[in-house]
Design a protein around this nucleic acid. Structure first.
Length: 417
DNA sequence: TGACGTCAAGATCCG
DNA sequence: CGGATCTTGACGTCA
């Protein structure tokens, strides 16, 4: 059982992907972007290994225009050493990765050109996982596509096109229910015709349920049967509704209570859970640390990252968590994250913000230049009189932290959450 | 024709 | 000039 997150890591220095617009793309530029992105990927993989995260989705943006203009660039040969090194790290850590072509990859389109591009896109994704040297347990997640007024026909067309895919692609392909068109029943029907494993997405199911209602657990059990030997553990997507956005929109963070309730209903099922949530690795670590004992050290590392963003909201919670972690013979993960969530529910008060800002400034006050100090002072004054946003004040500190390479601050959540 | 989702690039505005 | 903030881009379907 692994819990993971998708595509990008928050507050992980050097993990950012780069891209360019189509009109600025040329072979040289793309190649340098690819080199950069591959190194960013390695940074994320290293971070995952270090933090015990064993499930991760690689961003489709790894190779910009990977299925169109970059398809002619032999990046996998130029960078074969890097790819296989990263792949080795993934395998050695027992990490499982995946990729997920988005809503615009439509294999069942009624437009042949769109189908062609979908095939090229799948080939591209397969090429990345292949370059990493990963076996078919590392999956490619796909949606069925469009309905075009006739679901049965649309599924039929998907199956026809599916049968013509490269075997390597077929070996990795898994299908997911979507939040507007093909519900989990539709996907299971398509799956049964050609034996494609099915990824159950709980929020998509809530937004777009099957005709006959069943519990998450029952659907997960049904989908479990579609995962065969060689496919690896059954995989599901888990997310929570964002209360301020449209139905089906992912939440900012995973609420522990709700997640644990879901998780415990799975009881002893050995499945991989991909979280789809805005704060990515932050929620993944929270969930991982709460479902198994990762050692008090893991909690201490988390506390080091949360520290100033908790202080910014609630000095009381800050004090409680500190006290909680003093006994090194315990593993108070649940209590710690409950206090963290409580602090994040606390409305932000200017006094607490300034207190946290001053703590962070403490890292630089002896080495900052005159200009940096006066800029900081000026912004702080303006913030106090409501003439500057908290964001600009924190961005100012973030810049200084980058300049002086304050890893402790750069790896913390303060500048990001 | 706009909305949908996603992220970073690009453009523009501000002091 | 640097930094903050808005807009665009790239993808395809559907209302």
């Amino acid at each position: 059982m692994s819990i993971g997150y998708a595509c990008l890591a928050v507050a992980v220095n050097g993990s950012e992907m780069k891209s360019c617009t189509l009109k600025n793309a040329n072979e040289e530029r793309l190649m340098s972007l690819i080199e950069h992105n591959l190194s960013a990927l390695e940074t994320v993989i290293d971070y995952n290994v270090l933090n015990g995260i064993k499930l991760f989705r690689i961003s489709s943006d790894l190779i910009p225009f990977g299925s169109s203009i970059a398809a002619d660039i032999p990046w996998h040969e130029h960078l074969s050493g890097e790819f296989s090194r990263i792949g080795q790290k993934i395998m050695k850590a027992g990490m499982r990765v995946s990729m997920h072509p988005g809503q615009y990859t439509v294999l069942n389109s009624i437009n042949n050109a769109v189908v062609e591009r979908a095939i090229e896109d799948l080939d591209y994704h397969e090429k990345v996982l292949d370059a990493l040297g990963l076996d078919p347990e590392h999956k490619l997640v796909l949606h069925l596509g469009g309905v075009y007024g006739n679901k049965a026909q649309a599924i039929k067309r998907f199956l026809v096109h599916y049968r013509h895919l490269e075997p390597a692609v077929k070996n990795r392909l898994v299908l997911e229910n979507d939040d507007t068109m093909f519900n989990i029943d539709n996907v299971l029907e398509a799956s049964s015709a050609v034996d494609i494993p099915v990824v159950y997405d709980n929020l998509h199911n809530a937004a777009n349920p099957a005709d006959h209602a069943m519990s998450d657990l029952d659907w997960i059990n049904l989908c479990g049967a579609t995962w065969k030997r060689g496919d690896g553990l059954q995989k599901i997507h888990y997310s929570q509704q964002n209360p301020t956005k449209r139905t089906g929109a992912h939440s900012e963070t995973i609420e522990l209570e709700t997640f644990l309730d879901f998780y415990h209903r799975l009881s002893a099922m050995d499945i991989d859970i991909m979280l789809e949530v805005k704060d990515k690795n932050i929620s993944a670590l929270k969930c991982i640390n709460c479902v198994s004992n990762q050692g008090i050290g893991a909690l201490e590392r988390e506390w080091a990252r949360y520290k100033y963003s908790i202080l910014e909201r609630s000095p009381a919670e800050y004090g409680r968590i500190r006290t909680l972690l003093t006994d090194k013979n315990t593993y108070p993960a649940l209590e710690m994250y409950r206090l963290v969530e409580e602090a994040y529910r606390t409305p932000i008060h200017r006094g607490n913000v300034v207190n946290a800002v001053q703590h962070v400034w403490g890292y630089f006050k002896n080495k900052a230049t005159k200009t940096e100090k006066s800029r900081f002072d000026r912004l702080l004054t303006k913030y106090l009189s409501d003439d500057a946003s908290l964001t600009s004040l924190k961005n100012c500190l973030h810049r200084i932290a980058r300049k002086y390479k304050e890893e402790h601050l750069l790896n913390g959540y303060y500048f990001y959450k």
